[in-house]
Design a protein around this nucleic acid. Structure first.
Lengths: 331, 331
DNA sequence: CATAGCTATGTAACCGCTTACAACCGCAAG
DNA sequence: CTTGCGGTTGTAAGCGGTTACATAGCTATG
């Protein structure tokens, strides 16, 4: 009982392999014949060989996905969104982590192209489009999520980092804060968030508070906060992500500062833990699943010959208890 | 400039396709010829077609991985370990989420078999081995990680849930606690952790404290704690995972209870946030990457015809500040 | 010097499936 | 009774590799 091939099904059903193939793929086949074929398929437990199909048709019904890091919940949700969109169309996907290493990313792409993926979804890719062209020549359709660097003529999906940061900062301003610090994040997302922060402040006629660098980790947020606290002069801080915000909580506690009593905090991402911190963290919720889903739909559109366009999605502000309303104004 | 095939390389190098194939796969080829072939490969940008290779050889150099949930950091790390082990041997993998739905899991397996995966790594699979056999007949080699349910003759890798829970509970006992509650987790991991908890207590001659069900989420931990607090009578709680422990923190705070002053807590997993909570959470660190790596090595061994055996890995206790040393003993 | 034995290479079959093309059928129309 | 046509089905040629087998040079041997 080795692998069952289409030949065996053909023989069992008393037809030719062409007819079996047609019966299975919706070709013109007499209903009665189709029934016989399907019965044989079931009886024998036939399962078409995707590799052979791919070879014959030139299409693999697979899309390649590259994500920077599989350990974060956000990318996991994105991936799930993608899978949901693709599954509906009978597409599978192979996903791998670039770990933010461009060399590794190129190798992964090579591997995926070898597997004849019909499209590529690059999440937070570190590769410039021109570099891609140069290295790979003709590429299958590409969809970008949260790409770093320059523009390209390909659909790109991303969250509105700038707008969300603006909103978060404004939330702080409206609560009466006048000196608002910022713990900055890395990469494009970090820069965009910083820009939103600055815009909100400028619009309110406030000087940007102290700004320090973070690295998107708890430890980074902790260190950044200690640096910030060394100089002081602010009553609130907008932190570029929740993980760093947790570092802020910790550092503030160690300094005997109360949140939000002495320091108001707004994070970014709305990770699962945010709502359960003490105090619950006000933050921005990323529509990660949606991002992935839309990217998946775009892939399908591209494959269908259409010309989908990218989107910038807003993030919802989740107001919780880490921001204090300041009555008097500036401290 | 369409796809470059082995024929074009052969022509460019002035040899036959067989020679190209051999040159590329380490067959017997004169060094000088090999050079010519490789030069042609580079010049043309030839990239072998994995599908065709797979068809011809019957092997896809791919392993299929099924994980329950891609959004958790633990599975992400496991996956990374696996990838690391497999990459060294030139194997790729395709990973998908079962989302703990056995029906979905079966469909995924079907899909993977269609793609001729050479081995399967099932993480936290809900499918019994017998069910697998019944449904799929001959299966490629299988390696299990954290499997649910019965035994099988396949290498299985898992963490020592029972032992780790025992150690955690003992840590509490040694700190002088006499009434230790437990917030239980779901599935096999949850049951095993509960068993370790009970063993430690029995060994110390203590009655198991109140035990309530949780669901491994922050909300579940929160609810469980409120249920626990309604009756009271304990000074410490061993929580089946960190996410629920966070719920415990929250519920305790709302009740005005201090950790560890009024309530000591030990978690499980050592997620990134654990060290930054206030107080930092004492918990058990899962060797997730290692688990994946070992599973990957086992796959390779299986494929190499060897007969690898599974492993049960210990978890390290990370002692932080959420457990109070009780001087007097029972409260 | 004929022959066995290597080594390096080419020829062609095959992997499992799709699909262009041809063949066949029955039937309505001319 | 031809002819044409739409609907079904079969034949066979790929898809891009790998590999068993045959072949051709060379060298070592008796």
């Amino acid at each position: 009982m080795e692998r069952v091939t289409i030949y065996q099904v053909a023989e069992a059903a008393g037809v030719s392999v062409a007819t079996v193939s047609r019966a299975l793929n919706g070709g013109p086949v007499a209903p009665e014949t189709r029934e016989r074929v399907l019965a044989a398929v079931r009886r024998l437990g036939y399962r078409p060989d995707r590799l052979a199909q791919g070879l014959a048709t030139g299409k693999s019904r697979t899309v390649g996905v590259v994500i920077p890091d599989a350990t974060g919940p956000l990318y996991g949700r994105m991936q799930r969104g993608l899978a949901d969109a693709l599954a509906a169309a009978g597409f599978g996907y192979i996903a791998t982590e670039s770990r933010r290493d461009p060399g590794r990313e190129e190798a992964l792409l090579d591997e995926m192209l070898s597997r004849k993926v019909e499209a590529l979804v690059l999440v937070g890719s570190g590769l410039a489009p021109e570099a891609l062209k140069a290295r790979f020549g003709r590429l299958p359709p590409v969809v970008l999520i949260e790409r770093e660097g320059g523009e390209a003529g390909v659909p790109t999906f991303q969250i509105d980092n700038e707008g969300a940061a603006y909103r978060a900062t404004r939330h702080l301003v409206e609560a009466g804060h006048r000196r608002i610090a910022h713990i900055r994040g890395l990469r494009r997302a970090g820069r965009e968030r910083e820009a939103g922060y600055r815009r909100a402040l400028a619009e309110a006629g406030l000087a940007p508070g102290p700004v320090v660098d973070g690295d998107f980790t708890e430890a980074g947020g902790y260190r950044a906060t200690r640096a910030l606290l060394a100089t002081g002069g602010f009553t609130a801080v907008f932190v570029a992500n929740d993980r760093m915000a947790l570092g802020v909580y910790r550092a503030a506690f160690e300094r005997g500062l109360r949140i939000p009593g002495d320091l108001s905090v707004v994070g970014f991402d709305d990770l699962a833990f945010a709502a359960y911190l003490t105090p619950p963290l006000t933050t921005l919720k990323q529509p990660a699943h949606r991002l992935g889903f839309l990217a998946g739909e775009a892939v399908l559109a591209l494959l269908g010959g259409r010309k989908p366009t990218g989107r910038v999605l807003p993030c919802g502000l989740k107001v919780r208890a880490s921001v204090k309303h300041v009555e008097g104004g500036a401290v």
